[in-house]
């Protein structure tokens, strides 16, 4: 076999294998097996099987549910699937000072275990940032700069 022919065969073979691998990952059900976190509804649906195992739980902090005691660094809040008021909620308790961005309504991922008393106890609380990057609505930068920027982009909300 000529080296050129061999090289082209290598290329075609590699492309086929690479394409098949990518298609398998993109369209196969590999996503069902690779779960980074459970949503509260998915965890509650597991029933008793969810108790005790170290898992990650992800969702949004329910507004009005945060109770923070800085003296004892005890934090308690509820995590819901979505912002919908009817979404399934799970109570989370942590003994940690939360990251500064922690607030009501923000997305969180907590690592810990769900107990039979329906409380998720965590020692690793992570806050995620959305893909929105907004300037502060006031303060933070001089007013004249704010004015020139908002004039530059009238679509800005």
């Amino acid at each position: 076999m000529k080296p050129e022919t061999r090289n082209r065969l290598i290329a075609v073979g590699a492309i086929l294998v690479a394409g098949a691998a990518l298609a398998w990952i993109a369209f196969g059900n590999i996503g069902d097996n690779l779960v980074y976190y459970w949503k509260p509804s998915e965890m509650v649906a597991q029933g008793e099987k969810a108790y005790g195992a170290t898992v990650r739980l992800g969702g949004v902090v329910v507004p009005g549910s945060v109770v923070w005691n800085p003296e004892h660094t005890s934090l308690s809040f509820q995590v819901a699937d979505t912002h919908a008021p009817t979404a399934v909620r799970v109570t989370v308790k942590s003994e940690q000072t939360p990251p500064q961005m922690f607030r009501e309504g923000i997305g969180v991922v907590v690592e810990g275990s769900f107990q039979s008393d329906q409380v998720f106890r965590t020692n690793r609380l992570m806050v995620n940032h959305s893909n929105e990057y907004r300037a502060p609505t006031d303060g933070g930068m001089p007013d004249d700069v704010m004015k020139s920027l908002s004039q530059a982009d009238p679509q800005k909300t």
Partner: peptide, 11 residues
Amino acid sequence: WWNSLHQRQSG
């Protein structure tokens, strides 16, 4: 494709 801590691409 998957749940992640990292945010999606911004537009």
